[in-house]
Amino acid sequence: MKPSISIITIGVDDLERAFAFYRALFDIADEQIGAGEDHVAFFFPNDFSFVLFPREQIAQTAGKDVAISGTPGFVLSHQAASPAEVDDILRRVLVAGGAIVTEATQSEWGYSAYFEDSEGNVWELMAQPPAN
């Protein structure tokens, strides 16, 4: 895996407050912002995204209890070229001593999985769905 961090997702306690803060901070057009019930994404040039996500949901995604210290406040994301590459990286994670947090699944956002490195840092692997 050649790391290519294209998405940074940070955990927030108050999505609306965090959105207001980053909206004021970033010099970005409204068309470059996407939002759902549980997230806000800022889309920048060169395929880089900065996403706000509820901290509790990041903990659940990472297989952690919110009350446990060390619950991640961020997720590193690697954009894989294909679902096959996601699966290959997951195999390599296990061989290297990491752990799979969530198995790879297909969703409207693409084919993705989460793993922990040997220190408990959480990574997302994602292959975006093919364009229509």
Rank of each mutant, 00 (worst) to 15 (best):
M1L: 14
P3L: 14
P3Q: 10
S4A: 12
T9C: 05
G11P: 03
V12D: 10
V12Q: 04
D14V: 02
E16T: 10
R17Q: 05
R17E: 07
F19H: 02
F19L: 06
L25A: 15
L25G: 09
L25M: 08
F26I: 02
I28P: 00
E31F: 07
G34N: 14
E37G: 08
V40D: 01
F42N: 12
N46V: 11
F50T: 04
F50R: 08
F50P: 11
V51W: 00
F53V: 01
P54F: 05
Q57M: 10
I58E: 10
Q60W: 04
D65W: 10
I68L: 10
S69N: 13
S69R: 13
G70V: 10
G70R: 12
G70W: 09
T71W: 04
F74E: 10
V75F: 05
L76D: 00
L76G: 03
S77Y: 10
H78G: 06
Q79N: 14
A80I: 05
A81E: 15
A84P: 05
I89V: 13
R91Y: 03
R91S: 11
R92F: 04
L94Y: 00
A96Q: 13
G97T: 09
G98E: 05
G98Y: 02
V101Y: 06
T102K: 08
T102F: 04
E103Y: 09
A104F: 06
A104V: 09
Q106S: 13
S112M: 15
Y114C: 04
F115E: 12
F115R: 04
F115H: 09
E116N: 15
E116V: 09
S118H: 15
E119N: 15
G120R: 01
V122R: 06
L125C: 09
L125T: 07
M126D: 02
P129V: 11
N132V: 01
